[in-house]
Amino acid sequence: MPASSNRGAEIYLDGVTKRYPTSLALDDITLHVRAGEFLTLLGPSGSGKTTLLNLIAGFIELTAGSIHLDGRRINDVPVHKRGLGIVFQHYALFPHLTVSDNIAFPLTRRKMPKEQIRELVNAELATAGLSGYGKRFPRELSGGQQQRVALARALVFKPEVLLLDEPLGALDKNLRERLQLEIRRIHREVGRTFVFVTHDQEEALTLSDRIAVFNEGRIEQVGTAQELYERPVSLFVAEFIGESTVVPETTGDMAWVIRPEKAKLLEPHSEVPGGCLTADVMIQQSVYLGSGWKHEIVLPDNTTGVVRSDRIPDSLHGVNIPAQLTWHPSEVTRVSAPKRT
């Protein structure tokens, strides 16, 4: 059982592979989750992020590779001895137990004295803003309240690692945003390692110290939100996180990934600033957003893009106006992009 030190554990995943009879769910994943960090596994559904979480939790077995928790190999350690806290998308609260008994469950299993359990449970209820709800049953609580109870239950035994599997996926937008801030605050206060699964890029950007982007059973890139946004290593990452315009180079299999605020729109055939590259585009429409303009553009290959600007020449106002897109190579990234068919 993990001691209740005031830091999280680090997790080393080395060559982690999960093969099912008909598919390869995870393909040779190597990832280091640092002690105490908030790492998000981000990707579309079926990309392997939940499979990886289930492997760390111990719900499924590895096909190959190893998982180390603070230097201890846990491949063959059963779930109940891993001592990790887990928060599920649909809360997984025990319907036959009261809120208090749900939170007390991990402590009862650890044979803690009754008096101490009561104190810890009450403290958790207070933190979750649910004092006075202890005697209710989970079905008598709203979705947000149930997820708060689930969080309390997963944290009350002070696990060094908390795994969260799309915990906000079943909640409406307002509540989701409130709970995001709450999870962020809890992470700061308890200082444990959080591994968070989501398919929502905004949620990942809001919460994480670092984000691992998953695609088809592999990790495309691991980095801070800023690194992923400014220096995406692949087209997939560029398109999954934030908006961008992708301009293929005329020769070769590379393309420029241009973020909306890194591009400028000029009148056709006007002079281009030194060192900048250009492409002919068509401005489909421009929308005024108060803080500036947002222009939707179409490239010659019929892909679409977005440009943000403070203001543009009057001659470019309107619908379906030809223009020049320009950018400076040092401000954007170049990624491998096989020609689309």
Binding site: V79, H80, I86, F88, H90, F94, R109, R110, F157
Partner: peptide
């Protein structure tokens, strides 16, 4: 019966036998 309740119980430190009897 939601089988995830059993996963939750295991993750909270209950062994398979107590998971069966308590959950």
């Amino acid at each position: 019966f939601d089988a995830q309740l059993e996963q939750a119980a295991l993750s909270l430190g209950a062994n398979p036998l107590s998971t069966f009897f308590w959950v």
